[in-house]
């Protein structure tokens, strides 16, 4: 099956987020899940039982924000509400969205 342009991310509560595949690939975690023989790769559907919907929503926000601004210099920062900062930090760690991530470096 040819890879679809979109993939579905599912939160702990079962909320589904349909995300542009290329945008979601910024996360090495998701990239790993979508590789080769895993079931996620076949269905294009990744479930994250330990991540709640409002955090996943913000992460998805970030994916698209990253995708939109990936060619720009001096990008304005994305707003992050202080109250969900810690949760989001955990999620960022989980999704491996670190600046030292080699995938983020340009080929």
């Amino acid at each position: 099956m040819a890879d679809s342009k979109y993939i579905t991310l599912v939160s702990g509560e079962g909320f589904e987020f349909v995300v542009l595949r290329e945008a979601a690939l910024v996360s090495p975690t998701i990239k790993g899940m979508l590789r080769s023989q895993f079931i996620e790769a076949r269905t294009g559907r990744c479930t994250f039982p330990e991540i709640s919907a409002h955090v996943l929503e913000k992460v998805v926000d970030y994916f698209h924000y990253w995708y939109r601004t990936r060619e720009q210099e001096d990008v304005p920062d994305m707003e992050i509400p202080p109250e969900m900062c810690l949760e989001l930090l955990m999620a960022a760690e989980y999704f491996n969205l670190d600046s030292k991530n080699p995938l983020r470096e340009r080929e």
Partner: peptide, 17 residues
């Protein structure tokens, strides 16, 4: 760097603020 800051950096900056 080109493109956005990493989500972790953004979070940490917000947290520091």
């Amino acid at each position: 760097s080109l493109g956005a800051k990493s989500l972790m950096t953004l979070c940490i900056e917000t947290l520091a603020k």
